[in-house]
Nucleic acid binder design. Sequence first.
DNA 1: CTGAAAGCGCTAACAC
DNA 2: GTGTTAGCGCTTTCAG
Lengths: 347, 347
Amino acid sequence: MVLHGPRKMPIPTHAPVRLKDIARDLDVSVMTVSKVVRGCADVGAETRKRVLARIKELNYQPNWIARSLAGRRTYIIGLVVPDLMHSFFAEVAKGISATIRPYGYDVVICNSEENAGVESSEIDRLLARQVDGLILASAQNPSSTEIFERIEARGVPYLMVDRHFAGRNASYVGADDEVIGRLATEHLIARGCRRIAHIAGPQITPGVGRLKGYRQALAAAGIEAPDSFVVSATDDASGYEAALRLLRLDPRPDGIFGYNDPVAAGAMKAILEHGIGIPAGIKVIGAGNVHYSDLLRVPLSTVDQASNAIGRQAAEILIKAITSKRKKAPQTVLVEPTLIARESTGD
Amino acid sequence: MVLHGPRKMPIPTHAPVRLKDIARDLDVSVMTVSKVVRGCADVGAETRKRVLARIKELNYQPNWIARSLAGRRTYIIGLVVPDLMHSFFAEVAKGISATIRPYGYDVVICNSEENAGVESSEIDRLLARQVDGLILASAQNPSSTEIFERIEARGVPYLMVDRHFAGRNASYVGADDEVIGRLATEHLIARGCRRIAHIAGPQITPGVGRLKGYRQALAAAGIEAPDSFVVSATDDASGYEAALRLLRLDPRPDGIFGYNDPVAAGAMKAILEHGIGIPAGIKVIGAGNVHYSDLLRVPLSTVDQASNAIGRQAAEILIKAITSKRKKAPQTVLVEPTLIARESTGD
DNA sequence: CTGAAAGCGCTAACAC
DNA sequence: GTGTTAGCGCTTTCAG
């Protein structure tokens, strides 16, 4: 007498197989199948074998949406970056996703376009999707804490990368920007530069820290730099413009430290177009070690900021925060940068 | 008599607000609130106003997991690319996510590391997460159709970008690679090159198409090229090596068309290191117009492949496939490339 | 070791 | 206009 349908079901082609289907086929309860799927120990060896066989046969895939709803964990973490096109963030993203994958997590990446409003709404979406954690390279104004409060109200663990927000009750992973500024500037000094300019970045922690490091290194060496030696830019185009301004100065700088590689590359373009040699006339150094720095007109010296390591560490910390019951105190991890000397600061 | 709890609930700090909470507070049914949230018309103006007010007050955010389970739509589309670090894919990703966002969709990006096995398992994960659609720049072996069959068995709409798979029953959006090959080669010919080499890409459709275009252009111009003039590479490092091989040839090429910009940039590095001038000694052109091409040792001529447009169109087509009931025939969209002449092919 | 009961938070389909 | 009834596919809890 057939109570539960045939034992051998055909391989389905459209509607996904459910636990229920397997349970029915095998005359066991849904619970038992569920336990096998999740690898619980309390299932008889024989039963487990039969279930496993049928699972393979039907190519059963758990429905993560249902699992998430019932289990109140989505195994998704959200990442918000200002610009995926910037290789630094692409690399951080790669480091994060490679690290969390083995834990069963996936990452949803959002672009804020360097806009605080867009960022907030992205975060809200991510929260609505019930992400288990959040990693942010935030474009918020340092003084606005509203969105962070919203995250905290939801009790979702989050962590900042690249940009530090003072006072936020969240961990931070980033490069040691002061060290970057110091390494770069000291290198220029060691190469004989005495009139060292800096193309500073935006008023976010990396920009501020690198500028600070630049000043520290100059002070330590007893070198003075006029205010006009510090200009600012954010990308290759504005780096080009900024360099133009520096070139009009008298005396002209003999060394330029660019906030990041694109800025430095843009500056090099301007310098070369003015018929000034690099490194003969002006030496240039950047930061970030983007992968194409070696292919530029003049291979660009730079300070590597271990983007991938930043991603990996951030992911590691967040996973820990998610899986541990009691919340630990927020921590700050500064990844050590390393100098990479190339032709642009050669002799 | 208090049957339903206090009318004024405190603003909750941890457990997210649910439809149920709002319904209870306002003494209406969950359905009514749900309808208001989704903007259904059949709700009284007065009721709607009260609901809306309470929603704002409590900062209610719909739980998308629950919504997805009940509604059988996740509003998530999956994207699998071989390498996010490659700016082409980053740009495609950006185009896709910008396009689908207004429709309420988010994108989950996965990296296949150019590995078919990794790709398959990523796709399975995405399927398990019940994505509504899939966009693939696939690293599968052209002859293996297994993973595509699995997608089709699930009835999930999918679409290929960048790499075309013959015989697959899916739409395709990509650059017109033959035209890219032709434009680049014709440009070198127009600049006076007669011994034109090609650093070909891998055996996937873009590589194959560009090589074909290269051959077409040469044939059309009545120019012969020995077999040794076609070498292959995949990135800047191997492009450098490939160029080294070309430089040992006699007669030596006077023009080189690189499969993509990184390859061409690597080739330029090799050429310059050999003391040969660009464009005086050898002219070089790439493809892809990566954003730093203009900053290279010699600004690189290239063929732009409209990466962003590829992403946008792909997204557009997929959304249509998802939202339309009856499935339309798969279509092929070839985005027109455009030549960008810079110094590397100058006079 | 196995399973029944009770949801997770929401929406579809239909009554009132 | 509004509310009821039934789930979506899974997990949690706890009884057998």
